[in-house]
Simulated scan of single mutants.
Amino acid sequence: MEKPVKKLQFDLSGYYFFGLVLLVCLGFWPSYFAKFFYGTANFSFYFHFHATVLILWMSLLIIQPILIRNKQVAIHRLLGKISYLLIPLIFISIILLTHSRIPHQGPLTDDHLVGTFNSYKDLIILATAFFIAIRYKKDYQLHARGMIVTGLACIEPAFIRFAFRVISDPFVAYLTTIFTLYAVFLWIIYRERKQAKARWVFPLIVGLYVIAHGLVLFDMLYLPFWRDFVMWFAHLPLTTILI
């Protein structure tokens, strides 16, 4: 007799996201968190705003599955309404922080082009994942997958900062980061390979990442159309320059 398929327990994801918190601390410790202890945390409002809303979001990703596991559905739904406020704030924080980091006048460097692209790529991944989570909020399997992806989207920004510190070659550090990201997604896809439904979410997100990383690896970001877009974005009156 064939063994029954064991479904992924998405209500355990809150505990796994503690690992994401550790990764974020490793990635951002020298450049952000440690500076509060050394008295050198002279960051702009845009940076603090971005950090605050993401910390709140990661806290929500940890708490919500634990509430479901403990059958606290009413509290889960109540806290879920906060996501309708937090996600727009996350989008705004990413746009403002990205805008504050590029020169509003003058030439753009390759780092400005790639950095701006990575921010917009993260926005697309987050928007897609959150749309799935809300569009299918009455379907637990799809809703859970969408929300989990909003957390997994934090892996690349955190891991690449850690990789740049321990790997001397920036290109190797970048490849290590994206391969690690794909390994996480492929492990999840493999684990859910025999489930009957909702298996399209993680492959869809992987496809978006492959397109985005392909544009970076094949130097498509240095073409005039992207430089023109970033220049247009830089000239918008959104922020003052981050020092």
Rank of each mutant, 00 (worst) to 15 (best):
R199D: 08
S83Y: 02
F18I: 15
H76S: 07
L221I: 01
T98H: 00
I160A: 01
T239H: 03
I178L: 07
Y222V: 00
I95K: 01
V216K: 10
I125W: 07
T239F: 01
A173D: 04
D122M: 14
A153D: 05
A163K: 05
I205F: 11
Y15G: 09
F130Y: 15
A183V: 02
L60Y: 15
L26H: 04
A133E: 05
V216D: 07
V24E: 13
A133Y: 10
L23Q: 06
P170F: 12
G80N: 02
L181F: 09
F17S: 01
L12P: 00
K81I: 10
P107N: 03
I155R: 04
V166K: 00
Q72I: 13
P88V: 06
R199I: 11
Y32F: 15
V184F: 14
M220E: 12
W226T: 01
I188E: 12
I188Q: 13
G214K: 10
L242I: 01
L96S: 04
T40H: 05
Q195F: 07
P30I: 04
P30W: 00
L96A: 05
I124Q: 02
F28D: 03
R77N: 12
T52H: 02
G39C: 03
Q64H: 06
F45P: 04
L208H: 04
K81Y: 09
A51Q: 10
L89R: 02
T150W: 02
L238Q: 07
I211Y: 06
F233I: 10
F179Y: 14
L236S: 02
H104T: 10
S31H: 05
A212G: 06
V24M: 11
F218W: 13
T109N: 12
V114H: 00
N42S: 11
L54W: 15
R227D: 08
P157A: 07
F37W: 13
G39E: 09
W200C: 03
Q141P: 04
H112Q: 09
Y222L: 07
I87M: 15
L79T: 05
L152F: 14
P170M: 03
F233E: 09
R69C: 08
A34M: 11
L22C: 07
F18P: 00
F131P: 01
I160F: 04
L56R: 02
Q195E: 15
L126R: 00
G39W: 10
L79M: 14
T128V: 12
I124E: 03
R101F: 03
T176R: 00
Y209V: 11
K7V: 06
F36Y: 15
Y182G: 01
V149E: 10
S13A: 13
I63D: 03
K137H: 14
I124C: 04
F47V: 14
Y84A: 11
Y182I: 06
H76M: 08
L236V: 03
L236G: 04
F49H: 12
Y190S: 10
F202R: 06
V201A: 12
H76G: 07
E156V: 15
L181N: 09
R69M: 11
S168G: 14
L223N: 08
P103A: 02
Y209A: 08
L221N: 06
D122G: 05
F225K: 09
P170Y: 11
